[in-house]
């Protein structure tokens, strides 16, 4: 029961920090002005065009595809795998489980392998390509280790050790209604959950901010209409009164 309470506290803390940290980041990005029109051109001339561009960046990694096929491939494997795995995990948080979540369960399992394979590919690039090795910091390697740890511990529970997933679901359903149900005593689930909590905690302080950052990147999210509509930031407008 001590472990259950510790994990309950840990998850409230991690989820809270994740949410508050991310909201703080996003509001600060939104508040800082972009004083000049700097889309990387040619850029869409309409808001709708920008939405489509952003969709291609978010779902297809269009720019990365132009840059490096290997990085794109591993990155797509990891992100697509992770997305499916996350969707699959919805079943631990809703009751009854939605039909489409039920439907993707078998795919989600294999997505776990895809995700880990993609991460190993990215790590291999980081070690083997001299340019990428040069720019890598210890935190870049640790981030990959963390994500691989999460993926591998999950896969081990699925395929080797197995765990009491009914109890785990009851633990998380309990957390969501502020009651504490016992977590199974299982080293692998402790590992899996600790690493996830760590990921949630470091998210708002790390390069994982690339996820919200993309939506605020002026070179991607601005419409190319500088000659037609005047774009001026509040601090720049103040300069006008001088002349």
């Amino acid at each position: 029961m001590t472990m259950t309470i510790m994990f309950a506290v840990l998850f409230y803390f991690a989820a809270g920090l994740f949410a508050v940290g991310l909201i703080y980041r996003i509001t600060s990005y939104a508040r800082i002005p972009a004083p000049l029109k700097i889309p990387t051109t040619p850029a869409p001339r309409t808001r709708f065009g920008v939405v489509m561009l952003m969709a291609r960046e978010v779902f297809l990694f269009q720019s990365l595809f132009k840059a490096s096929l290997w990085t794109w491939l591993f990155s797509a494997m990891f992100h697509a795998g992770l997305a499916l795995v996350l969707l699959r995990h919805i079943r631990y948080f809703v009751n009854p489980v939605w039909a489409w979540v039920e439907f993707i369960q078998p795919f989600g399992i294999y997505a776990g392998f895809l995700m880990v394979a993609g991460l190993l590919g990215l790590w291999a690039r980081r070690v083997l390509v001299d340019r990428v090795r040069y720019i890598s910091t210890p935190s870049d390697h640790l981030m990959l280790a963390l994500l691989i740890g999460i993926g591998v511990s999950g896969l081990i529970m699925k395929f080797i050790t197995h765990t009491d997933i009914v109890a785990i679901k009851s633990f998380f359903m309990g957390l969501m209604s502020f009651s504490i149900n016992p977590l199974p005593t299982d080293a692998m689930i402790y590992t899996h959950l600790s690493l996830i909590a760590l990921l949630l905690i470091i998210f708002p302080f790390s390069k994982l901010l690339h996820a919200p950052g993309l939506f605020f990147s002026p070179s991607r999210n601005q419409v190319e209409n500088s000659r037609d509509i005047r774009h001026i930031s509040p601090w720049a407008a103040k300069l006008e009164s001088g002349k």
């Binding site: 800082i32 990428v132 390069k207």
Partner: peptide
């Protein structure tokens, strides 16, 4: 500048060291 230019702030935070730009 971090408070005046969204580009700078976002670009400082968002890089993941993927290396896409490294040979460009």
């Amino acid at each position: 500048l971090l408070g005046k230019y969204r580009s700078l702030k976002v670009y400082m935070d968002a890089c993941v060291h993927c290396g896409a730009c490294s040979d460009k």
